[in-house]
């Protein structure tokens, strides 16, 4: 198990290297931070001094090597736009994004899995048909549109929930949490639904198709022939066998929820990393953008590792050691 984790981390290193190279290279050409930082009036001397200050006069690979070297020590430099350490900015914004992503993932699993089971078991019921139609809406409507519609209904017309921001937060050490105040929770609802809706429908459809697949297997027929109650067949035998692919997808979804919180955060002016990233793109704030992309890569790699470990927990056939004879 330990060697498995180590090997997975070693495999992750080239991935991280390529991501950092791509993100850095991309940002080297997306805009001119110097022009933005200097504003309208500047002298040539000022410009040259700033370029040298930022190290932008050095060759690309030297810049990249410095960036990687610093990044390994958790040092991502100063934001061009805000003149504050990038690590500090991200640490400040991370709780908002992580709490939002966690809530969205929780909603999509807690609602998507039961809906998937239901529609898989009762394929022809009216509710199943309704849920499937509804899920098509969830898949096909773009996130920002859903967010705006929710704001329109629940904030503008009904006035029940705030349309932007995070509400009041409670500080726990460096972490700021919106889970402990009424306004924080109320502010969480709309963005979390917006962000989780697509995943919810995907998970529902996945669980449904897996459930239908598993219900056709011989071991389910045999479980029926053994006279087990339906509850044990559906939730004991069938559900567990649908979990492996669901874990994979849910894991990848969690990564993309964090990564693609950008749109939702923009719509709801949610003070998270996504909003920070969008603002940084506008200002060509390369250190922030590069650090953000690196962080997303780390999140994906970590989630994949956890997913692989969960497989081992769920499926005994993957546990090595004792082999199968035939």
């Amino acid at each position: 198990m330990f060697s498995f984790i180590v090997s997975r981390i070693l495999q992750a290193l080239p991935v991280m290297f390529v991501v950092s190279l791509i993100s850095f290279a991309m940002f080297a050409y997306v805009g001119d931070p110097v022009a933005i930082m200097l504003g309208q009036d500047f002298t040539e001397a000022q410009r040259v001094a700033l370029v040298r200050d930022l190290g932008l006069d050095e060759p690309f690979f030297v810049q990249f090597a410095k960036f990687v070297g610093n990044a390994m020590q958790g040092e991502f430099g100063l934001s061009y736009r805000l003149s504050r350490p990038v690590a500090e900015l991200i640490a400040e914004r991370a709780p908002a994004t992580l709490e939002l992503a966690f809530s969205a993932a929780l909603i999509s699993l807690a609602v998507g899995v039961p809906m998937g089971i239901y529609t898989g078991l009762f394929r022809h019921s009216w509710l199943s048909r309704f849920l499937l139609t509804f899920s098509l809406v969830g898949v096909s409507l773009p996130t920002f549109l859903i967010g705006i519609l929710l704001i329109l209904v629940f904030s503008v017309w009904l006035g029940w929930l705030p349309s932007f921001g995070r509400g009041d937060v409670v500080r726990i050490g460096w972490w700021s949490s919106g889970f402990f105040t009424v306004s924080g929770l109320k502010a969480m609802i709309l963005p979390a639904i917006t962000l989780g809706l697509l995943q919810l429908t995907l998970i529902m459809r996945l669980v449904r198709s897996e459930m239908m697949e598993v219900l056709r297997t011989d071991y389910i027929k045999f479980a029926r022939a053994r006279g087990l109650p339906n509850r044990a067949i559906y939730f004991g035998h069938a559900l567990k066998n649908t979990l492996v692919p669901v874990i994979t997808i849910a894991g990848l979804q969690l990564g993309s929820i964090i990564a693609f919180a950008i749109v939702t955060e923009t719509v709801f002016q949610w003070p998270g990393m996504g909003l920070l990233f969008i603002q940084s793109v506008g200002a060509a704030d390369i250190p922030v953008m590069a650090a953000y992309l690196m962080l997303i890569a780390v999140v994906f790699v970590t989630i994949n590792l956890i997913v692989d470990l969960l497989y081992y927990a769920v499926d005994p056939r993957l546990r090595t050691g004792r082999g199968a004879g035939h």
Binding site: T217, D218, Y219, K221, F222, A223, R224, A225, R226, G227, L228, P229, N230, G236, H237, K240, N241, V314, D315, P316, R317
Partner: peptide
Amino acid sequence: MRRIRGREIGTIFQDPLTTLNPLYT
């Protein structure tokens, strides 16, 4: 009928590789 299956009428299926749930002992 469920209570009869297993209790009064037992069943053996053809392929033992697929009739046992792989995830349970």
